[in-house]
Amino acid sequence: MTPVIVTCGLSKWYGNVLGLSDVSLEIEPGITGLLGPNGAGKSTLLKLITGQLRPSLGTVRILNQNVRNNPSLFHRIGFCPEHDSFYEEMTGWIFLTSLLSLQGFSAQEVRARAEEALGIVELWADKDRLIRAYSRGMRQRLKVAQAIAHDPEVIILDEPLSGLDPLGKRKLIRLIKTYREEGKTVLVSSHVLPEIEALTKTIILIHQGKVFAQGDIHSIRDLIETHPHMVSIRCAEPRGLAVQLLEKECVLKVHFGPDGRSLLVETNNRDQFFTTLLARIVQSRMEVDEITSPDDNLQAVFDYLVGK
């Protein structure tokens, strides 16, 4: 697939403070999660990508066009900012129709698109209330509405799930996933791992202004060869299996579960371990209930990469 967002050697300094360092990315259609703790440089990267900031070094191209000083490109880009800021004296309806009219649509189309977007984020009933009377969740949904109302090809969402209740989060996650199915490119930032995990497997890990890893969560996991990997196995004879596995060099430690039917194996070579494990299971005709990787999630990778 052709990358939609391409950054090359992107760096940003705020005076002497480094905001972003030498970030080169290629983001393809689908959902990409930008993950990192607060202050990692996520918002700086998104602002550079949307041309709100000028890079100190490097370039950004979206849809094969330069972003800076190219306002016409924003017909194809939707951006949801991180700040909880609005024109507080406007109603939700006026806010959305005002921004849509800046997109250059006719009055009729502005109304139609605003109605549709407010319906999608379930704010139609509250459209005539002043924004300052909106709850945090409603304000968050309104921000998302203005990012999607003009039907952009590229949607960039800076912490869109913050401030939403669990139901609201679930609905928004479902909505964002529909854009992937439509072939759009969605870049979502968050510092909350489960949020990103719920959205996508394609992630960019960012910390202290640097990209630590990029790609599929499993590919990233494979990059960390020396990092011990945990595998949990539930079977009828965990002790017997443990004896067989401990003979192998790739197995570092074995812990038994409190239920007496599971063991947690720590390995330094995941591929070799799984080959051995499967061979043992087949040879001994062992009944296995479940094999899982409890640390095969973003938290483990992230903690490891940032040195926690």
Partner: peptide, 15 residues
């Protein structure tokens, strides 16, 4: 000051 600038800077309108 109102931090509403991103709404304007990400529209197809010259600054």
């Amino acid at each position: 000051e109102g931090k509403t600038l991103p709404y304007l800077l990400t529209r197809p309108v010259a600054k």
